[in-house]
Amino acid sequence: MESVDKLKVAAALLLVVVGVGGYYSLPADQGLLRVSAVVVGLLFAALVLWFSRPGKDFVDYARDSVKEAQKVVWPNKKETWQMTGLVFLFVGVLALFMWAVDSGLAWVFYDLILGRG
């Protein structure tokens, strides 16, 4: 990262800090103004980052992410219900299996080994 980009990132962080500082320096009864200070600080920070190399890289990454998300093929309603049914069936079978193993181990340890039946 170039030194100019480092300065831009530092300036953006400073703008965020100034916005948050503005929030705490304003009176508590000025809620809208306090929130506006933070929002303005974030907007100016985003504007500064927009013109830096890391900011442009982030925008490119976000665009690529949106393109990839558009390629996703979502299941229809029937497929969704079928998969939900399979999940519930699997959970039920697994619960029965775990109950059987737990009961079997309890029987082995408490009845056979320790004789506490």
Rank of each mutant, 00 (worst) to 15 (best):
E2S: 13
L96E: 13
A45G: 06
V66N: 07
D60L: 05
G22K: 02
L89H: 03
D111I: 03
V93P: 01
S3C: 15
L49Q: 02
K71Y: 13
L42I: 12
L7A: 13
A12E: 06
D102V: 11
G92E: 03
G92M: 01
A95H: 08
L94G: 04
V9A: 02
L96P: 00
R34Y: 07
S103R: 14
A69V: 02
D29C: 08
L33K: 02
W99R: 13
L105D: 10
L15T: 05
A69N: 15
N76L: 07
L15R: 02
S36Q: 08
E79L: 01
S65W: 14
Q30S: 15
A62F: 03
A95G: 09
A45T: 02
V93Q: 05
V38H: 04
L7R: 13
K8A: 01
P27N: 12
P75C: 07
W81I: 01
V9N: 01
F88W: 05
A28K: 15
M98Y: 12
D102G: 10
V91P: 01
V17Q: 06
V39D: 11
S65T: 09
P27H: 05
M98S: 09
V91K: 10
V17N: 04
M83H: 06
T80N: 05
A62S: 14
V18Q: 09
Y23P: 03
W81E: 05
Y110I: 06
L89M: 05
D29L: 14
V35P: 09
E68H: 05
P54L: 08
G41C: 10
F44T: 02
W74G: 00
L15M: 13
D57L: 12
L43E: 12
S103E: 15
F44I: 13
A28V: 10
F44L: 11
K56Q: 11
A11S: 12
M98G: 03
L26T: 07
V48A: 07
F44W: 04
D5H: 12
P54N: 14
V59A: 11
K71F: 14
L114E: 15
G22P: 00
L49E: 08
D5F: 00
K56A: 11
K71R: 10
V108I: 11
A46E: 10
F58A: 08
S65Q: 10
F90V: 08
V73G: 06
G21C: 11
G31P: 04
L7Y: 13
W99M: 10
P54G: 11
G104S: 06
E79R: 02
V17F: 10
S52I: 02
F97Y: 12
V20W: 02
A12R: 01
K78L: 06
G85Y: 00
P54M: 00
L26P: 01
K77M: 06
V72C: 03
A28N: 07
A10G: 00
V40F: 10
G19H: 01
D111T: 11
L112R: 07
K6H: 14
F109P: 06
G104W: 11
A46P: 03
V59Q: 13
D64E: 15
L114W: 13
L42S: 04
Y24H: 06
M83S: 03
E68I: 05
L86A: 01
A28E: 14
G117R: 09
G19I: 03
V108Y: 15
A45D: 09
L32Q: 09
